[in-house]
Computed example of a mutant assay.
Amino acid sequence: MELKLEVIVLPVSDVDIAKEFYVDTLGFRLDADFPIDEGYRIVQATPPGSACSVIFGEGLSALPVGSARGLHLVVTDIERAVKELAGRGVDIDGPFHDETGAFHHADGTHRVPGVAPGRPSYGTFARFADPDGNEWFLQEVTLRAPGR
């Protein structure tokens, strides 16, 4: 059985501000913008190269605005990606790695500035948030296990 992650719903306060951030600032592809009726609007956008999209709008989520945490976008060159996003006006923290050499701690502790020693795949991160505080990470992945 195949299971494909295709959509993540983001809780946002202002659909147009979120659309501007994801489409204009981050460069996500705008797939749909359906203003169905008063209080119900669906916007779908997809990161370049991704099969998974984000959906935000009105009447789509019962989660508190800005409560999405730990969303990851994979890049092959984190230094270049950080520079590009910063150049687009994104307030981004990184690159950094965890002092354990593994995944990063959720609370931001144990972070060491700079790329991971030896620059192993999965070891270096950067962090930013959308205008509502939904938290995103970049993760550098250059080599995946066979079959992945």
Rank of each mutant, 00 (worst) to 15 (best):
E2C: 04
E2M: 10
L5K: 02
E6L: 09
V7G: 04
V7C: 05
I8A: 10
V9I: 10
V9A: 00
P11G: 06
V12T: 03
S13M: 00
V15A: 03
A18V: 06
K19Q: 13
K19N: 06
E20I: 15
F21Y: 14
Y22N: 05
Y22G: 04
V23L: 08
V23S: 05
D24G: 05
F28E: 02
L30K: 10
A32N: 12
D33N: 10
F34C: 04
F34G: 04
I36S: 13
G39L: 07
G39R: 10
Y40V: 11
V43R: 03
A45R: 08
T46P: 02
P47L: 08
G49T: 05
G49W: 07
S50G: 08
S50D: 07
S50I: 04
S50Y: 10
A51E: 14
A51P: 04
A51G: 13
C52P: 01
C52L: 14
C52Y: 08
C52S: 15
S53V: 02
F56P: 00
F56K: 00
E58M: 08
E58R: 14
G59A: 07
L60Q: 06
S61Q: 03
A62Q: 13
L63A: 14
P64G: 03
P64T: 01
P64W: 01
V65F: 02
V65I: 13
V65Y: 03
G66N: 07
G66V: 12
G66L: 11
S67Q: 03
S67F: 01
S67A: 07
A68C: 03
G70H: 05
H72M: 15
V74D: 10
V74L: 12
V75I: 07
T76W: 10
D77C: 08
I78K: 01
E79V: 14
E79M: 10
E79T: 13
E79C: 11
R80K: 15
R80C: 10
V82A: 08
V82S: 04
E84N: 15
E84I: 13
L85R: 09
A86L: 07
A86C: 06
A86V: 07
G87V: 03
G87I: 08
G87T: 03
R88C: 11
G89A: 13
G94T: 03
G94L: 02
G94E: 02
G94F: 05
F96T: 02
H97S: 02
E99V: 12
E99Q: 15
G101L: 03
A102G: 15
F103T: 08
F103M: 10
H104T: 12
H105F: 15
H105L: 14
T109K: 14
T109P: 04
H110L: 13
R111P: 06
R111L: 11
P113Y: 07
P113K: 10
G114F: 07
G114A: 01
G114P: 01
A116S: 09
G118F: 06
R119N: 11
P120W: 10
Y122N: 06
T124D: 02
F125Y: 08
A129G: 05
D130T: 06
P131Y: 12
P131T: 11
D132V: 12
G133N: 05
W136A: 01
E140T: 03
V141Y: 05
V141K: 09
V141T: 12
T142H: 11
T142Q: 12
T142R: 11
L143R: 15
R144T: 13
R144G: 09
A145M: 12
P146V: 11
P146C: 09
R148P: 00
R148D: 13
R148F: 14
